[in-house]
Design a binder for these strands. Structure first.
Lengths: 243, 243
DNA sequence: CGGCAAATTGACACATCTCAAAGCCTGTGG
DNA sequence: CCACAGGCTTTGAGATGTGTCAATTTGCCG
């Protein structure tokens, strides 16, 4: 078990507050179970009651909820450093699944150690808390998109969100980032039909503010994307301040 | 300042785990600023950076996000005992507003004391954490509703959610609870136009599984509502278990 | 080259929005 | 007690948006 592999978590937490050396070594000293998932696999099952919480080391994952007839809604996208399943630590029973959008490496960290951190290193515990609160903020932003924005604005908003999150963790270059998903998966994020998403994309292509070939997004005009989608990064809380 | 008025919080936290006598008295000993809001007033402003977090003592509130053209999306409803604005403790800057759906009493609790609780009474701190994680779960349930369920299913789901939450805190009788909002507010929860909501309600009225006169909801056939809306209460985490 | 998943397109049905008007209810002032 | 104003609800009609179905095209991999 390579201890250094939890560095994405240190990096992610450092985005929002300073991490002390002790906190850093606590994190890097956590025992974890590494696992690899291929694109499409389920990482955490709905209704399960996990004894560990998982963290994305690299790749993309998403939270998913499904209906009895198979209709699916994705409720958030997660990237390297995201402590995706911290929710299970408090909820105990999963209210949704976590699925791999791409091949990805995931670390499973036993709850016992996380509870211990809340007891002994409250500041670090608060940063864990923060990460779940940011997830809630992401859900709210998505609710506004799905409820009140046009499909085109919604797609643009999603691209702005990923762009800023990936640049924050150093996983995007100045104007492009990997986004290797299908239009069907995108339709499950947007709450729309596949066909409609396809038509929305072709209209966005005409607007020309970004390109996406199913693999990589290239930002052509970030300002226009931000304005068009009414993207306000406040909800991501990407500000380094004592918490 | 009547210390006893924070009992709704004790009651709410007790739904999900046992509260020790010490924790109980810590909560009841919290200094707070009580305030009254009338229906429609803003309790916490979007983009503000509060130094206290608010808790609903009675009445209904909602989280709200708005677009530049005035379109509004409500992302959750909150009731007595809900520590609505705990999110601000970690986020620091609000990504949404909290508005009063009815006249309501609210307690504002300084962040200083809450941080102290995370330092000195980690179990109580975790229950605060839990309450924000349940909020996230509610957002996910709403995302599934708005993205993939029919408007009628969505309304039915909302009624099931409020029914179970209000019964849990003893604010609903066996088959009815107050729900004093306008169809326009409901449309902002559903992400639909007012006219369409009105037509959806008249179809639901024909189904006859509940009644709502704008003031009070009466459940006529709870089983059918649950089945129709595919309501699964797991997400509310209403299970008393060590956390 | 053939096979398969994904993307694209067109046609048509259905859902939803907007605009506009009418009806209903309640509180207030005369 | 009545008349009225204002907010909310209800209804209808027509314009748009979105879903479904089905066929075709594209791109990749063996």
């Amino acid at each position: 078990m390579d201890q250094e592999r939890l560095t994405p978590l240190v990096k992610a937490l450092s985005l929002r507050d300073d991490i002390s050396d002790q906190e850093r070594s606590t994190i890097l000293g956590l025992a974890y179970r590494p696992r690899t998932f291929s694109r499409g696999e389920t990482i955490v099952k709905d209704h399960s009651a996990p004894n560990d919480s998982c963290l994305i080391l690299d790749g993309y994952a998403a939270r998913a909820a499904v209906m009895s007839d198979g209709k699916r809604q994705l409720t958030a996208v997660h990237v390297a450093g995201d402590f995706v399943d911290l929710h299970a630590l408090m909820l105990r029973v999963m209210d949704h699944s976590v699925v791999a959008l791409s091949d990805c490496h995931v670390a499973f960290i036993p709850h016992r150690q996380l509870i211990k951190i809340t007891e002994e290193q409250p500041h670090l515990g608060r940063l864990f808390w923060l990460s779940t609160v940011v997830d809630a903020a992401i859900h709210r932003a998505w609710l506004l998109c799905i409820g009140r924005k046009s499909p085109a604005q919604h797609v643009a908003h999603l691209i702005c969100e990923l762009d800023i999150r990936l640049r924050a963790i150093g996983a995007a270059s100045k104007d492009s980032f990997p986004f290797p998903i299908t239009q069907s998966e995108l339709s499950d994020m947007l709450g729309l039909s596949l066909v409609h998403v396809n038509k929305t994309l072709s209209r966005l292509r005409e607007m020309g503010d970004f390109t996406w070939d199913g693999t990589t997004v290239r930002i052509v005009n970030r300002d226009r994307l931000v304005e068009f989608s009414e993207f306000d990064p406040t909800y991501l809380s990407l500000i380094k301040t004592p918490r």
